[in-house]
Amino acid sequence: MLNFFKSSPPAYQNLTPAQFAEARRRPGTVLLDVRRPDEFAGGHLPGAINIDVTAPDYAQRAAALDKTRPTYVYCRSGARSAKAAEQLTKAGFANVANMLGGVLDWSEPLER
């Protein structure tokens, strides 16, 4: 019997902070912080760009990114970035990864 309520796995990868740290160093990657601008200003991963996933223009701003480049997404705890990663994959981004635990679990220094 088929289970119609079973959810399919995400089309993006979930990475631990250690896996995320290694993967984001690969050439050509986009590092996307989807927190609010005030959270971003308080400290973010080096090289990250900020597009707030809760902002009304999120989809428009995200669509301007290169869909062919690996895109690594994070937030404070991993919840908003999972939502953003799902939206990016639905929008046609080929290689998307979400950082589990967000900056709360990040052990490297943040940039201000």
Score class of each variant (00 low, 15 high):
Leu110Val: 10
Thr54Glu: 15
Glu86Val: 04
Gly42His: 08
Pro46Ile: 04
Gly47Arg: 05
Phe20Thr: 00
Ile51Lys: 00
Glu108Asp: 09
Glu86Met: 05
Met99Asn: 03
Asp38Phe: 13
Pro56Leu: 12
His44Gly: 06
Ala18Cys: 13
Glu111Arg: 12
Arg69Tyr: 10
Gly43Pro: 07
Ala97Met: 02
Thr54Arg: 15
Leu65Tyr: 04
Phe20Trp: 00
Gly102Asn: 06
Pro37Phe: 11
Gln60Asn: 13
Leu2His: 14
Asp66His: 08
Arg76Pro: 05
Pro10Gln: 06
Glu39Phe: 03
Pro27Asp: 10
Trp106Lys: 01
Glu39Ile: 01
Ala62Tyr: 00
Ile49Glu: 15
Ala97Asp: 01
Ala23Lys: 10
Leu32Ala: 02
Tyr58Gly: 06
Val30Glu: 04
Asp52Asn: 14
Asp105Trp: 06
Gly92Cys: 09
Asn95Trp: 07
Arg61Ser: 14
Cys75Pro: 00
Pro109Thr: 03
Ser107Tyr: 05
Met1Arg: 12
Arg76Ile: 03
Val53Ile: 13
Leu65Met: 07
Glu108Ser: 11
Asp105Arg: 11
Pro27Asn: 11
Ala55Leu: 10
Ser7Asn: 12
Ala63Phe: 05
Ile49Asn: 15
Ser77Phe: 00
Tyr12Ile: 02
Thr71Asn: 06
Thr29Pro: 07
Phe5Asn: 12
Leu88Pro: 02
Ala82Pro: 02
Phe40Asn: 07
Arg80Lys: 09
Pro27Leu: 10
Pro9Tyr: 01
Tyr74Arg: 03
Cys75Asp: 04
Asn50Ile: 04
Pro9Leu: 04
Phe93Thr: 06
Arg69Ala: 08
Gly78Lys: 00
Lys83Gln: 15
Leu110Phe: 08
Ser81His: 02
Glu22Arg: 10
Ala91Asp: 14
His44Asp: 10
Gln60Ser: 12
Val73Cys: 09
Lys83Arg: 14
Ala23Arg: 06
Thr89His: 02
Arg24Ile: 08
Val73Asn: 07
Phe4Trp: 12
Ala79Lys: 14
